[in-house]
Structures are given as C-alpha cells and as structure tokens.
Design a protein around this nucleic acid. Structure first.
Length: 102
DNA sequence: GTTATGACTCGTA
DNA sequence: ATACGAGCCATAA
C-alpha cells in the first residue's frame, strides 16, 4: 500500500545532513522490520518529492546504487562531509540513530 | 489469478 | 574476501 511507502518516506526525510541510514534501518524505524526492499520503492520518489535519497545506503555503508547514479550519490554524500573508507561510508561516524533522535 | 524483478539483508560456507 | 539460498513484498507484465 501507499501508506507504508509514505511512512518509509517520512523516516527517510528525518535523516539529517551528514548522516546516512541503511535500507534495513529505515524499514525497521518505520515499523516494518525485514522489508528493506520496500524502501527501494519508497525511494522512487514521485517528481517533486523532496527526499534525501542519497542518505540511504546498503548494509555496512555500501553504495547499492549501480553505475553513474552510485557515483553521484557518493559525490552528494561527500559534499555533506560524509567520510568514506574505501568504497564504504564510515558508519562508525555517520550512521543515523533513529531511536535516539526525536 | 500468475510470474518476474529489484538501489536488500542475513546466515552459512 | 566471494557465493549462494531464503525471506521479503510492491509493481509491472
């Protein structure tokens, strides 16, 4: 249902600048543990939806978006001062903790 | 109704 | 490090 996608989007919008969350984290925070794949559909933002899609990464800080799009995601994150270790986001520093923020 | 696909994750080997 | 299988479910055909 759309309902769930909107809830997922709401969680995605809570990720602050300079932080990232994994697909699994977003799903769990929205109340749908185990539904990481649905986050993908939530990220297919309708035109005009302001969604920080680049702040959602795969488990372990991996960039899941393939090809040029993935490159762009990395650039966007780096422009927000998100540090990378090799091909991964440094989750130690930039993982967003949903439970600790309002 | 069915099957296939995907920016996934986790456990196991 | 890689590879595979199972679980996941909204969309598309």
């Amino acid at each position: 249902m759309r309902l769930t996608l909107e809830q997922l989007r709401a969680c995605i919008r809570r990720i602050p600048r300079g932080k990232v969350a994994t697909y699994g984290q977003v799903a769990a925070a929205a109340g749908f543990p185990g539904r990481a794949r649905q986050v993908v559909w939530a990220l297919r933002a309708p035109p005009g939806a302001r969604l920080p899609w680049h702040r959602v990464v795969a488990a372990g800080g991996r960039i899941a978006l393939p090809g040029e799009a993935g490159f762009e995601q990395r650039l966007r994150l780096e422009s927000e001062r998100v540090a990378f270790t090799g091909a991964r986001v440094d989750m130690k520093r930039h993982a967003f903790d949903f439970t600790r923020s309002a």
